[in-house]
Computed example of a mutant assay.
Amino acid sequence: MEAFLVSTGIVALAEIGDKTQLLAFILAARFRKPVPIILGILVATLTNHFLAGMLGSWITILLGPETLRWVLGVSFIAMALWTLVPDEFEEKDANLARFGVFGTTLIAFFFAEMGDKTQVATVALAAQYRTVIEVVAGTTFGMMLSNVPAVLLGDRVAARMPARAVHGVAAAIFAVLGIATLLGAGERIGF
């Protein structure tokens, strides 16, 4: 349950103001059909984060416990710093209308998530907790917590959300996870 809750919290916070949340706003404004957009986000996120979770699981097989602890600790600290860097979104990322609302959302979100903070976090969390299903469920739920309101409420939510403060909280959580991992916190879960 810890893996699910931590994964949900980190991704929900990290997603505020992220390029995929900006993509959700743009798709909602362009198509005005929330159900296929939300379903496209869900399927894209499940697919992308499952692949990321499997990569994280595979990494635990390749690396010894001590090396893994250092890689994960440094990765979480790097994620903390990366979270503080604002994302930029290019309009061409949402320009796939020929695939319909669901298809456009699915393709745009899947590719926008490639190498994104939340995908990298999913890899690290799956390696940290060694439970792909709980981590992917948590990261997907976190994505939906951030993006469904973006689709349903659009600019009204964005204008009231203190993105800089939220990013600061997410960065602090990543930093705490990184420091705790470097100090050996992961040993209790099997490192």
Rank of each mutant, 00 (worst) to 15 (best):
M1V: 12
F4W: 05
S7Q: 05
S7P: 10
S7K: 03
T8W: 15
V11C: 07
A14Q: 02
A14F: 01
E15Q: 14
I16T: 03
I16K: 00
K19C: 12
K19I: 01
Q21T: 12
Q21I: 09
Q21Y: 08
L23V: 12
A24P: 04
I26T: 12
A29G: 12
A29M: 12
R30S: 06
F31R: 08
F31P: 02
R32G: 06
P34V: 02
P34K: 02
P36H: 09
P36D: 03
I38F: 02
I38Y: 02
L39Y: 08
G40Q: 02
G40L: 10
G40D: 04
I41N: 04
L42H: 12
A44M: 14
T45W: 01
T45Q: 07
L46V: 15
L46T: 10
L46D: 04
T47V: 13
T47H: 09
H49A: 04
H49Y: 14
F50H: 08
G53F: 11
G53H: 05
I59Y: 04
L62W: 08
L63I: 00
P65N: 08
P65C: 01
T67G: 00
T67I: 15
T67F: 00
W70F: 07
W70C: 07
V71A: 15
L72P: 11
G73P: 08
S75M: 12
S75H: 10
F76T: 09
M79E: 05
W82C: 03
T83I: 14
T83V: 09
L84P: 01
V85T: 10
E88D: 14
F89I: 13
E90P: 01
E90C: 03
A97F: 13
A97V: 15
A97Y: 13
F102T: 14
G103D: 00
T105G: 02
I107F: 15
A108E: 01
F109H: 03
F110R: 09
A112K: 06
E113F: 05
E113G: 11
G115A: 06
G115L: 11
D116L: 15
K117C: 05
V120C: 09
V120I: 14
A121I: 15
T122H: 05
T122N: 01
V123G: 11
L125N: 04
A126W: 13
A126C: 02
A127I: 00
A127V: 04
R130D: 04
V132T: 14
E134P: 02
E134H: 13
A137Q: 09
G138R: 10
T139V: 15
G142E: 08
M143D: 08
M143T: 10
M143F: 06
M144E: 07
M144Y: 11
L145C: 14
S146T: 11
S146Y: 02
N147V: 14
V151L: 09
L152G: 01
G154E: 02
G154S: 01
G154Y: 11
V157S: 05
A158L: 13
A159P: 00
R160W: 06
M161K: 00
P162Y: 07
R164Q: 05
A165I: 00
V166T: 06
H167C: 00
G168E: 04
V169F: 10
V169N: 07
V169M: 00
F174P: 04
A175W: 12
V176M: 02
A180N: 07
T181Q: 13
A185Y: 13
G186V: 09
E187G: 00
R188L: 10
R188E: 03
F191K: 05
